[in-house]
């Protein structure tokens, strides 16, 4: 979380954005973006998880503590969860975590979440591009 001192941007490099993607929707959507040869910035690094419900908010804290410039969490749309209800819990957890991060002075523009289905390759591309642009714009404080 020591954003000011540790980010890549601070060192003049490209920002690194960590993305948690659920295996069944967003990871598939990201693969589809590849199959369609869509182009998006190379700043994003995807961690594959079975379900967005697997993403512990502590992972996000850890990423920021280690120097992540941005973190995103993606999963199936509500109602489409491969495991029926996982993303409903994700939703509550991260709505709450966002408030806590903001309260702790982590710029909310560094943390995003989005529902992206397996067919929404373009949405994945656009979302990643958008977050990259935002995070690059923030630079370091």
């Amino acid at each position: 979380m020591d954003v000011a001192n540790r980010t890549n941007t601070a060192a003049g490099g490209e920002p690194k954005i960590l993305a948690f993607c659920c295996n069944w929707c967003t990871y598939t959507g990201a693969d589809l973006a590849g199959l369609n040869r869509m182009k998006y910035p190379a700043n994003v690094r995807v961690v594959r998880v079975p379900c967005s419900g697997r993403v512990n908010p502590q992972f996000i804290l850890r990423a920021f503590a280690r120097g992540a410039d941005g973190v995103v969490v993606c999963g199936c749309h509500p109602g489409d969860c491969h495991y029926a209800t996982g993303n409903f819990f994700t939703r509550r957890r991260f709505m709450l975590m966002r408030g806590l991060l903001e309260f702790n002075g982590i710029d909310p523009r560094r943390f995003h979440a989005r529902w992206i289905s397996g067919s929404e390759a373009a949405k994945f591309r656009d979302f990643v591009s958008e977050v990259c642009a935002i995070v690059k714009g923030l630079g370091h404080e």
């Binding site: 998880v49 079975p50 419900g53 512990n56 996982g86 819990f89």
Partner: peptide, 24 residues
Amino acid sequence: CGACTVACRTGAIDLRGFRNVQIL
């Protein structure tokens, strides 16, 4: 799915193949 692992503050319940320590 591993959604339960997040509810476990201790980490007593963990998902094989996607354990907390692995993701960290």
